[in-house]
Structures are given as C-alpha cells and as structure tokens.
Simulated scan of single mutants.
Amino acid sequence: MRQAHHPEVGEFTLTGVMSALSDPIRVGVVRVLADGRERGWGDLQAPVAKSTLSHHLRVLRDAGLTRTRQEGTRCFVTLRRQELRVRFPGLLEAVLAAAEDEDVGHQVSVKDTAPPA
C-alpha cells in the first residue's frame, strides 16, 4: 500500500468536511472513533461491503477527519479530533451531539475483540 495522503489542518475545508459527514455510515465511523481509540479497519463493522467501507474511510481521510496508519498488512484509523478543533472549533462536538440525538450512524460498530472467558 502506498503512503496515504493526510491533508494539513490548513487544507481542511468546511465543504469537504461537511460533504464527508453527509453519509450515515461515515457519521457512524466518526461516532465509533470519537472515543479516541485507534481502530483496525477490520475491526469496524458496517452493513456495507468491505470495498464500500474502504471507500467511506478514504472519504473521511481525504477530508481530514481521520488519519490512517499502516502496520504490515493491517491498517489502523483514528479521528483527528484535535486538528478538527483547531480548524473548526465546536463543529465535531455539534455533529456528534446531533448524531447521538438523531441516532445517525448507529449501524456502525466495532467487533468484540475480547477473548472468550
């Protein structure tokens, strides 16, 4: 995999971020990542094909919402919360609160990776 491009904070645009957040699956991914933990792509569960989920993750990355890191054959994603706060103060919190209130993106979750007891 070639190195993914991550826009600098000054390259974030309001229309780019809002466009990326216009899809419920992408909002769901942001909601999952809002806990601050890095997640493996394979740990994310959504009611779409893997290729479609990959597309959604790329849209989020290209808009500046997420950062992707490759480790061997695995890819990990994190929310760029601090960078978004710098560029658009309060926007992410408002989006997350509205998504919670309207239950947008509820269909995206994380696989339970805990070992069986």
Rank of each mutant, 00 (worst) to 15 (best):
T15Q: 14
G16R: 11
V17G: 01
M18C: 14
M18P: 01
M18D: 09
S19M: 13
S19F: 14
A20F: 12
A20I: 04
L21A: 12
S22Y: 10
S22A: 15
S22V: 04
S22P: 06
S22N: 15
D23S: 14
D23Q: 14
P24L: 05
R26C: 02
R26D: 00
R26P: 08
V27D: 03
V27T: 11
V27A: 01
G28W: 10
G28M: 11
V29A: 02
V29K: 02
V30A: 08
R31Q: 14
R31I: 00
R31G: 00
V32G: 06
V32P: 02
L33A: 07
A34L: 03
D35Q: 10
G36Q: 06
E38F: 04
E38N: 03
R39M: 05
R39F: 03
R39L: 12
G40W: 08
G40Q: 13
W41S: 07
W41G: 12
W41P: 01
W41H: 15
W41A: 04
G42Y: 02
G42V: 00
G42E: 08
D43M: 03
D43S: 14
D43H: 06
L44P: 08
L44C: 06
Q45G: 03
Q45T: 15
A46P: 11
P47K: 07
P47R: 11
P47M: 07
V48E: 10
V48G: 09
V48P: 13
